[in-house]
Design a protein around this nucleic acid. Sequence first.
DNA 1: CCAACTTGCTAATGCGCATTAGCATGCGGT
DNA 2: ACCGCATGCTAATGCGCATTAGCAAGTTGG
Lengths: 350, 350
Amino acid sequence: MTTSKTSPRRITQRRIAELAGVSQATVSLVLNDKADGAARIPEETRDRVLKVLKETGYVADPAARRLAGVGNKIIGVFTYEPAFPTESLDFYTPLLSGIEAEAEELGCDLLIFTSAPVVEGTRQLFHQHNRLRLADGVLLLGREMDADELATLVRDGYRVVAVGRRDAPDIPYVGIDYASATEALLRRALELGHRRIMFLTDARGGESGADRLRGYERALDGESVQSVVHPTDGGRIGADWLAVREFAPTLLVVESPSVGAAIRDQAIADGIDVPTALSMIVLGSPSRVSENDVDFTRLAPPRAELGGLAVSLLSRILSDDDEPAESELRTLIDCAIVDGSTLVAPEVHA
Amino acid sequence: MTTSKTSPRRITQRRIAELAGVSQATVSLVLNDKADGAARIPEETRDRVLKVLKETGYVADPAARRLAGVGNKIIGVFTYEPAFPTESLDFYTPLLSGIEAEAEELGCDLLIFTSAPVVEGTRQLFHQHNRLRLADGVLLLGREMDADELATLVRDGYRVVAVGRRDAPDIPYVGIDYASATEALLRRALELGHRRIMFLTDARGGESGADRLRGYERALDGESVQSVVHPTDGGRIGADWLAVREFAPTLLVVESPSVGAAIRDQAIADGIDVPTALSMIVLGSPSRVSENDVDFTRLAPPRAELGGLAVSLLSRILSDDDEPAESELRTLIDCAIVDGSTLVAPEVHA
DNA sequence: CCAACTTGCTAATGCGCATTAGCATGCGGT
DNA sequence: ACCGCATGCTAATGCGCATTAGCAAGTTGG
């Protein structure tokens, strides 16, 4: 039960009050700079209290403050997968970097809900001892989120911002406009002359995957293009590559750089040159640094920026005097396109 | 002031009590499984309360619990530099990974003190609104820590564990035995015949730097070796390289892989082959993945493991029934040695 | 039938703080 | 001299919970 034996004589406002010869209430008033209205504290008294505060290095107990109904500048961070293991590192790290920077700017601490038990691969937000309420608001990170959980959060009055667009209604988010970026990138390919295109989708893509697909379809809409959308076979690149060979597109669109690299290896092994015989586009996350051996033409989602924006949106939601308009609660930011070397005009077989 | 307007009707134990037809105290007793001693609750009543608890999805307010003197399974994490920016990524990430894994295991959340204001490059632990007390205990990460701050922490009764050995007395830590590892690695070099050795030290090394130096000196003690210890010139590799050329060692010891790589580039540019003309040893952190183009013979500190151990030590310090013995409060773990390709026997000029 | 337990529960209290009603004092005006 | 009225502060309260003393009813023992 880890009963933290409170150490002998924790210093409290009462103690400060004794030392300064005032009441506890006065200490609180001085501390919180509430010198207006009914409570008036002359300079002299204030200084006396401040002096003792300095000397003792007193800091208010955040738990007590919280209980007394004051925000405590803590932002909860919930990641649906462990955040730091190397696998998910490249996904979460840029986000966390942006979040940390903005939180530091705002003077907020971050409460990471590592205690959430893992069930079937993802963490469960609600559990017997969740500390959600300790935070003023919560940031949700992850590719996929349970819609019911999100609804419960909102219903229970938690202040929440999701990182990444969400279908669930009423939940504020900051996302990346994958649809537009994908559409733009594909239009570029169309202009180069590609008319036989294959899209290798990732089934576990969540909303952002759906957005990419939508962008893809928007770009192709009305164009006379032969297109196939093929879900990847859960990492079994061999099967995927067979499907690609069979359809024989001039352009292959994949979601992640790792899949892209694997496919490209297969292609080269089969004597199919990338990009001359097969152009490739990557829509997903930027590869981890060690993977950037292939200079893919790809999307470069500004993750760090996204993290920072999520924090600042949450902060505004929490604030009394700067509440965002309804339209600001759900926004998408532009996604950069990286001009790599894997998209060229298709060979002409005439 | 971010007054978090508590949402309309937050559910409390009193509410649960009403619904179950019992008193608030009973709810608390059921919740905390305190059925012994003076408080006895028959199965029937307990079930009735549990039923309501399930239905409402009630979770106790962590702030109130904390205030009532119960540990709340929150581990504070203080990093002396921002943790996620790419520069410090390779230092902190493995640590955080280990910390996260162990925290998850123990059902703890992590409170990251990003709010600490940065003064002169490092964060200040104590500040006006620090939330240290919210955590049951605190982990301290960073190369260098202010001894006075550490003393204050201990004096004020905070439960603390430092990651990395600390000179400051009374502060528990888990560190890496750099001294022994350095000594072992240098002995290996001596056995290969090196008798003219230069150690390029990093001035900002903190305790671990001192340990490496000590290991270096222990290895050379009693051997007839010509040795120079030269502090790096704060990134001005050119000046460092001149110093190396002047002394002309057969073995160069450096602390970090990045410095190592830079020096090696200089050496190659000057026509000095590594390792045939100049062997190199790296004592510092493993390079970031993208840097491992050079296969240095080096130390490989087990950082993730270190992070995990720090958490479990802290957890034991906090526990009532598994308190570590005095000797366990300050421990060093072994550091692996990586057999790279940059250490070979020196050329014989006879 | 009464003392002595036992059982099943609750009232009361405190954790440390923020907040508000209101008391005591001084002072100007009439 | 008396009535405001402003000033400077404090007592009291509640936030939601854990914990303890102890009450009322039932049970046993003699």
